[in-house]
């Protein structure tokens, strides 16, 4: 039996490339209670829920002052895509 989590764990880990990606990766790992979150990892593969998306965004707002919408993470569930969407948002 294969679960999405195992599939994702099997794929190679790719570290964050920008400071923003690194911050978002750390917050994602904290909220999902996992060791690390790579830039090609998907929020859903770690069982991410909309409530966790809200918590992730609340922390990104508190740390960066940017306005972030949980819908962005639900739509762009891979870190590199989500971080790019956050990058494109105005600083609050």
């Amino acid at each position: 039996m294969t679960t999405a989590r195992e599939l994702s764990v099997d794929s190679p880990f790719e570290a964050a490339r920008t400071p923003l990606e690194a911050s978002v990766a750390r917050i994602l790992a904290e909220v999902l209670e996992i060791d690390r979150f790579g830039r090609t990892d998907s929020f859903y593969d770690f069982g991410g829920t909309s409530l966790q998306a809200i918590r992730v965004c609340a922390r990104i707002e508190a740390e960066t002052g940017r306005r972030v919408q949980p819908g962005w993470l639900l739509e762009h569930d891979v870190l590199a895509d989500f971080a790019a969407r956050v990058e494109a948002s105005d600083a609050g």
Binding site: A53, A58, E61, A62, Q69, P70, G71, G92
Partner: peptide
């Protein structure tokens, strides 16, 4: 609100 979720900042 903008979007579908209320956040503390909003």
């Amino acid at each position: 609100i903008d979007g579908d979720f209320l956040l503390p900042g909003a």
